[in-house]
Structure formats: structure tokens, C-alpha cells
Design a protein around this nucleic acid. Structure first.
Length: 110
DNA sequence: CCTATGACTGGTC
DNA sequence: TGACCAGCCATAG
């Protein structure tokens, strides 16, 4: 990914997440791998810094286990699941997403 | 400038 | 399968 150096790392992460199409989910590690000089934790922290009214599809970002990350606080994860289901994402009995089917293949262009 | 703090990950037990 | 531990680094105060 080649982003302008003037924009903060968080912004780059947000941009990548905005590139995730509806009906697909990406893992923190996946996002981190697309943003140069970014780690999975950075992605998590970046999302944690998001406000209530944002245009970033944060709900499409889940952990490597295909599960929704339990945020600090409580509710939100439930809402996240609802949004994903509304987009066509299927959850198994354990509440996990099949990354083999709904996993974001990533960017075609690097 | 320094400290505290987090939506994670991978490897062990 | 599930719990625990230690790296990881940008942002806010």
C-alpha cells in the first residue's frame, strides 16, 4: 500500500478497512499486513479510537480466530454481529465466521 | 519528553 | 479447547 506520508497511521488503517467490501471480513493481522509498518495491535487500537459516528466499516474487522473481538465495555460486539449478518456473513454455532468463505482475499494491487 | 493504555497474535501448558 | 504470557507501537494527557 502506498499512502501519503502526511496522513497518520490510524488514517491509513481506516482507509484500508474502507476498502473491505460488504459481505466479507478481514482480520486484524490482514489489515496490518496491508499497511506498511503496522501491526495487528495498531489496527485494534486504531479501531478503539474510532468515534460513535464514523464511516469506517469497523464491523468487518475481526480477530484471527474469525470471532468478534470483545471490546472493553460490553455491548457493541452484539451489534457488530448483527451488522455482519445483515451483510450476509454467516456465524457458526460458536459464533465464529468462516474465514475460508467470507475472508477478505486482500488487495489485488499492492 | 515520559507514562499509561489498548477491538491482537502466536506459542505453551 | 481453553487459559496464560510476553512482545508489539502509536496516541493522548
Amino acid at each position: 500500500m502506498d499512502f501519503p506520508p502526511e496522513i497518520p497511521l490510524y488514517e491509513r488503517i481506516y482507509l484500508v478497512i474502507r476498502h473491505v467490501p460488504a459481505g466479507q471480513v478481514a482480520t486484524y493481522g490482514q489489515i496490518a499486513g496491508l499497511v506498511d509498518g503496522c501491526t495487528a495491535r495498531m489496527v485494534g487500537y486504531a479501531l478503539a479510537a474510532l468515534g460513535p459516528n464514523t464511516d469506517v466499516p469497523w464491523q468487518r474487522v475481526i480477530n484471527s480466530q474469525g470471532k468478534i473481538s470483545p471490546r472493553s465495555g460490553g455491548i457493541g460486539s452484539a451489534l457488530q454481529r448483527q451488522i455482519l449478518e445483515a451483510e450476509g456473513i454467516a456465524f457458526d454455532a460458536r459464533g465464529k465466521v468462516d474465514l475460508r468463505k467470507f475472508g477478505w482475499p486482500g488487495f489485488e494491487v499492492e
